[in-house]
Every structure is written in C-alpha cells, then in structure tokens.
Amino acid sequence: MNSNAVWTSFSTIIRREVRRFMRIWPQTLVPPVITMSLYFVIFGSLIGSRIGEMGGYSYMEFVVPGLIMMAVITNSYANVVSSFYSAKFQRNVEELLVSPTPNWVILAGYVLGSVTRGLIVGLVVTLIALSFTSLSVQHIGITIAIVLLTAVLFSLAGFINAIFANSFDDISIIPTFVLTPLTYLGGVFYSIELLSPFWQGLSKLNPILYMVNAFRYGVLGVSDINVVWAFAGVLSFIVLLFAWGLHLMTHGKRLRH
C-alpha cells in the first residue's frame, strides 16, 4: 500500500470507530458524564466544602483534574476493548484482516478512535466542571500532552485486553478489578501527602498516580510527584504496549489460526 492508501485506511478505521461510539451515545457518552457530575456534586460540592483546602486549593479545584483524568482513562480503555472484542465476536475484524491494511495501521486506527472518545468525554466533563469551579490552566502544554499520552496508553492496554478476551466477561475483568482500584487509589481524591510514608511509597508504584498528578500539575501547578517521571513512564509504557499489540497482531494466534 502506498502512503495515500495507508492514510485512507487509517482514517477509515477512525471514522468507523467514531461512528460506532456516536451511534450508541447513550451507552458511551452519557453515563460517564452523569457519573462525573455526581462526583462533582457529592465529593466536590457537598463533602468537599467541609474538607477545606488540599494542596493549597479548594477541594473542588483539587478533585477536578483527577476526575477529568479518570473519565479519560476509563473511556479510552472501555471504547477499544469493547469495540475490538465485538469485532472479534461478530467476526467483522476479518474485514480488516483480509485487506492489505498493515497491522500497525489497524492498531493505530483503533487506538486513535478510542483516544477520540476519551478526549470527547474528558472535554464534556471539563465543561461540566466549569459550572462548579473556575479552572485556570497553569501549563497548557503539559496538560494537553499528558492527557493525550494517557489516552493513548489506556487505549493500547484496552486493545491488548480485547485480543486476549474470549468472552464479554473477559473485557470487564481488568476495568473492574485493576483499573478502578488503581484510579481510586491514584490520587484522584486526595494528595498522597496525607498518607503515612509506607502507603506513600506503595502509592508511588501505582502508574495512574503519576498521570493524575502530571495532569493536576498542568492545570493547578501542584503535584505529589516529579512530572518528568510521569512522562518518562507513560512514554515507556506506550512503546512497550504498542510493540506488544503489534506482536500479537502479527504473530499471535488469537486473531489468525
């Protein structure tokens, strides 16, 4: 395939992915917006007003970046894992496999389609947050870069989950038992300064802590961790997961017998 054909194929995959999640918007776009709105009302407004300041900001201001990031992470992951597994289940993934589209384009197309949903949900959640508090972004470049890279990272993870999944149960195990606990314990609702040294050390093994804090640093200018580590970690994981995903597509036996 020449570069024009590769681009056409790539944009076709993204177009189809976007069409898919827009077609079922009551399942894909509305629930995260409702959930996050409830978080803003309950934790930010009702309980938050009694908590006082955290990291030098009101609790509502503190919690908003974490909740935006949480929405981006869960939606990036959920979109690709559901879409690619459905394509496997209905066998329409074969439409792509029999075509001359290179494997890396298939992977990149699904990932970018999923990133699109993550970012749309993140944007809507941000707009809702603005009705509760004002946000003045301190480092726009860092904010955009970390949210984009995080969405890419979790889209890749979701894609790999979908390749391994053999049933619809398999696509909910990781989000329920891994992603949700790590996100809740990843500094979305609190600063790890509140924890004892032992729990602080343990929290630093949680990769989501770095992404949430890097995003919070971009928005508020405060972070529990060194932002450089966050970028280094996210980029490293992206390279690793992309290579793994590509290997599974090229040599794995889960898509081709």
């Binding site: 395939m1 020449n2 054909a5 590769v6 056409t8 194929s9 944009s11 995959i13 075509s99 001359p100």
Partner: peptide, 9 residues
Amino acid sequence: TQGGFYGMP
C-alpha cells in the same frame, strides 16, 4: 468502509 480498508478514495 471496506473500500477504505483497501485504500480507495
């Protein structure tokens, strides 16, 4: 969409 997968405009 299938046309797109074959790189067709």
